[in-house]
Design a protein around this nucleic acid. Sequence first.
DNA 1: GTAGGGTTAG
Length: 693
Amino acid sequence: MGVTAGSVLNRLLCDKGHLTKPSNPTTVKAITSKILTYLDSGHLPKAVSILFASPFPFQFSLYAHLFQLCSSNRAILEVRKVESHLVTFSPIPPIFLLNRAIEAYAKCGSLGDARELFEEMPQRDGGSWNALITAYSQTGNPEDAFGLFIKMNRSGFLPNEITFASVLGSCAAVLALWLSRQIHAVIFKYGFNGNVILGSSLVDIYGKCGVMRDARGIFDEIQNPNDISWNIIVRRYLEMGEGKEAIIMFFQMFVAAVRPLNFTFSNALVACSSITALEEGMQIHGAAIKMGFENDEVVLSSLIDMYAKCGELENACAIFDQPKSKNLISGTSIVSGYAMSGQTWKAREFFNEMPERNVVTWNAMLAGYTHYFQWEEALNFIFLMVNTTKNIDQVTLGLILKVCAGLSDVEMGKQVHGFIYRHDFCSNIFVGNGLLDMYGKCGYLKSAKTVWFHQISQCRDRISWNTLLSSYARHGRSELAMKIFCEMQLEETPDEYTFAILLAACANIFALEQGKQIHGFMIRNGYTMDSVVRGALVDMYSKCHSIEYAIMVFKERASRDVILWNSMILGCCHNYKGREVLKCFGLMEDEGIKPDHVTFRGVLHACTYEGFVELGRQYFDSMTNEYGIIPRLEHYECMIELYSQWAYMDELENFVKNMPFDPTVPMLTRVLDACRRHGCLRLGQWAAQRLNE
DNA sequence: GTAGGGTTAG
């Protein structure tokens, strides 16, 4: 251990004999210039080591300079030497220099030295308090910083801007909203409310605490918000899920003529991805180039990710091909972009050619396979991953569990469970919920319950409850689901997702009364009926053959997206109201809503019920020709059903023999059945032969 | 001379 601040100071105070020595200008001057030479060549320890060659004090500015250099170099031993020289040879060291020493100790990570020097100082000023409060605040000791702040006030020192900034920093670290509001009031009282830094800090805290209205109010009152202030407000909107507002504020920066930081560009671009605002993203791209960010690695990576997430893979790749763009992060963005747009094959090709990958890259690829239900590929990839890299984290485990659930492979799920147990991922809520979901989807409700009580009982959240509910609902245990819902309300507020699960549970067992009760509960408790919930309601009412109620919910509000239209269309299908389906399809188009593959499933079903064979064929053709939707397996199944049921045997034969893929077993069975019923030998023989193959 | 934000990918 070196000499601590306090002990040197004590020696100084007890033994003042050598303090009366006169200074020697020539010695001091010579050593100063030697020290400066060392500093110029970057030799801080050497410079400090010759301090004691002079038994006289140096100019104060030299000490200040040395403390600053020690801080940036984290050179604790040198701080001690400089302080030692200062207090040994200056009769009364100026307070500001000792404050610098406190700051230097703190920057070097030694709160002990900082505190000791503070305690032993013969005299303190407000700056000394500030230095120590900042020291505690910046080293992650917010409680101590608050304590010192109170002590400072009691000792009769008035806090200034610096004090408030430090204390607010601690408030932000522990989200102390209530304390922040009080300090906000005091700041106002002292007239510091025009201060940009304090204003920005308050915006930061209110934003972090989720009260964006207050945050925005303060932001609007800052007279000249600077780049950091703008960065904070954009970032906070983004974090609160208000991507649109974040982008609006970003463009406001240009009106205010403040040059954005590269991080602000990055935040704004993430905001664009979050709401797939490609148009705005491209404008930001243009602005970035105009303002000279075309070689900024952070901005380039963010641009690549924005284009990839918005489905513009060509643009993303074009930027990636620029020399400054190629790195692990942007490469991972490309993999993720291809994977999550369904082009898993391209993603894999790119993945295989990457010079380096990390766990995020691997997860991005795996997420693509799971998202598109490519279980076989996912499984092979998992084996490759386990054999290639030791890096598996909670995201990987969550995805692997998703694969187990998708394949209903509970044996593999149990093995993963063992791995989770052995590698101490048990306390991770993300993994815990994944386990719960896996057992639930595999129908192992008992195991799900064990996970529930023994693994996540301490840390369960709303997602855990929803997962448990949906595993009971999926297996027709509706009454139990309702009971669990009652328990849930004791510790979590249900969300829209909860109700969608419950309504689906009711629909599955045709529990109209309970469905109505949930509907009423939501209305009484002021839940927003978003399109997911309205879809679940339409679905429940139509499955329970209360089509009038379904229509009522459907017509309630004007905003209807494709999902809600689909719910209504499938609801009509359930009630064998084929003509209504086709009517809906027309109205939907009038509203400007583009039909998707689910819509066409409903439409083709409707044509089957009503016997509109020719119309059904026209709709099927229009999918590719007019709407750009590639027919899926289920649409081919619908057409086979349509022709089979209405005995259009020539059309059936032509259709089934010209599909772009081999007919599946259920398809051939259906064809064979139709041939038997309508006496079509040739096609029947063909189907039987294909079945035997 | 002391004070604030942020690190893009799953």
